[in-house]
Design a protein around this nucleic acid. Structure first.
Length: 315
DNA sequence: AGCACA
């Protein structure tokens, strides 16, 4: 019902860019996945996550480093077509947390004001398939690494036409157009034209079924991202600013029911913290409540909170 | 995308 709602455009904002008109009723009708281009090469999965996860109907995301220049694309899927369209309309001109120097709240399709990179969002050619199973799934495909590994492993002739698509030797500046959305994944059963709006139902039906894939990207590699850490009464807190202190973080955490104690660790780079709670229920509630919280010391986004991989020792 | 302490 509220799926079609989105933030209104800023009145008189010269930076406002109207979203491309939704595709006519030809193709891509019923597609659940958005194709996102124009991302900087150093974009982090969590940045994509923050852009889309709060959109109504968000389901899962695939981030792909294409290896061509600094092109990074994402395939973001929603539970139904309307939700995908709504998110596309909204995010084509609303980038939360990104402002112009004059504090303009809405920034069109500019993703990073420093670089001027602009997001380009459209419906994908086909719906992405969530990796079998459940849970919020984030997948990352890094073709830059794959090419390097392949080159270094040149002597090995064991892999006969495995997965990759055509890799030009050094086609750096060649094709920029991204004149369309490459398809994120082969739909395992070629049913992309039906009006099904409940993707989870069909996709979980045929585990392990493989199909030919000509130039589609490989989808059989293990997940790189672990958003499937089992619940734990201890939370892992990352994305803290350099200057974040234990006191500052504890001030926020201590307001959460069931909070026990906090430990911070600095391993050279950014500090991380472990926050212990009485039980999983309270740690989960605290994670939900504080996810993305921006502290005064934050120099990037807000707090990134996950379940810790092991419970804090009793003291 | 970074997980220690016993």
């Amino acid at each position: 019902m509220s799926l079609s709602h989105h933030l209104p455009p800023p009145p008189g904002d010269p930076y406002y860019v109207y979203a491309p008109h939704p595709y006519p009723d030809t193709q891509r009708q019923g597609v659940l996945t958005l194709f996102v281009a124009g991302l900087p090469d150093d974009v982090k999965p969590r940045e994509i996550h923050k852009l889309f996860s709060s959109r109504p109907g968000f389901d899962h995301c695939l981030l792909e480093y294409t290896g061509r220049g600094n092109q990074v694309v994402a395939f973001v899927s929603f539970v139904n077509h309307q939700a995908a369209l709504s998110a596309m309309s909204a995010l084509n001109y609303v980038i939360p947390g990104v402002k112009y120097p004059d504090h303009r709240e809405y920034s069109g399709t500019v993703f990073d004001p420093d670089t001027g990179d602009r997001l380009h969002i459209e419906l994908a050619k086909s719906s992405s398939r969530k990796r079998h199973g459940d849970g919020g799934v984030y997948r990352v495909v890094d073709k830059r690494l794959k090419r390097k590994e392949r080159a270094a492993d040149h002597e090995n002739a064991g892999d006969g036409g495995n997965d990759d698509d055509a890799w030009g030797e050094d086609d750096n500046g060649g094709n920029d157009g991204d004149g369309g959305s490459d398809e994120p994944l082969d739909t395992e059963n070629d049913d992309s034209d039906e009006k099904n709006e409940l993707p989870a139902e069909r996709s979980s039906g045929q585990p392990g079924l493989k199909q030919h894939r000509g130039q589609s990207l490989s989808d059989d590699q293990p997940d790189k991202l672990s958003s499937d850490i089992p619940p734990c009464s201890t939370l892992f807190v990352a994305n803290l600013g350099h200057s974040c202190t234990e006191e500052e973080l504890k001030e926020v955490l201590s307001k959460q029911p069931g909070f026990h104690l906090l430990k911070m660790r600095r391993r050279g780079g950014m500090p991380v913290a472990f926050a212990d709670f009485t039980d999983i229920e309270s740690s989960t509630a605290a994670m939900d409540a504080l996810q993305g919280t921006v502290l005064a010391s934050s120099d990037a986004d807000g707090l990134q909170i996950e379940y810790a991989r092991s419970k804090m020792r009793k003291s």
